[in-house]
Amino acid sequence: MINKNLILVYEGEFTQDITKSVLAMAERNLESMGEESGIKRKVFNVMVECLQNICKHSETFDEETYGKTTAIFMIGKHDSEYFITSGNPILSDSVAAISSKLENINSLDKDGLKQLYKDIIKNGRLSEKGGAGLGFVDMARKSGKKLTFDFEPINEHLSFFSLKTTIPRN
């Protein structure tokens, strides 16, 4: 963990206010490291989508039914790249849908992702939770790399969904 140079780790409740605080802290850190503005913007972009995904999709579980569920967010830096990782519980029923969405994204090149983005923004509708269905696509576009993801069963209802996005520094 230490030699991976973690910049920020947050575990606990995720709300819009916490999202704003985490973003402000991470921005200040990137600023103090003197990171180039283009890279900072991409990292910021991916952080927002990641944090807001957790806010929208991780808050609806009833503790009595599903057990305690906490989410985690971290950002770190290797020499040549930043990585933004999130982990949060989801209903196991949605694993297949999320997995196929991510696999599809990972199968596309730059132009394919651009086309997918345009198709969704043009024909899609905001979900009840206010998501545009564009978060993963946008993260993949800003990254330029494949998204890494995994699902671990937690109990009979829930699985732990982890997602890692890397932003190359050059």
Partner: peptide
């Protein structure tokens, strides 16, 4: 900057 929900 704008997020994806704003882009919609």
């Amino acid at each position: 900057y704008f997020n994806t929900a704003s882009s919609k």
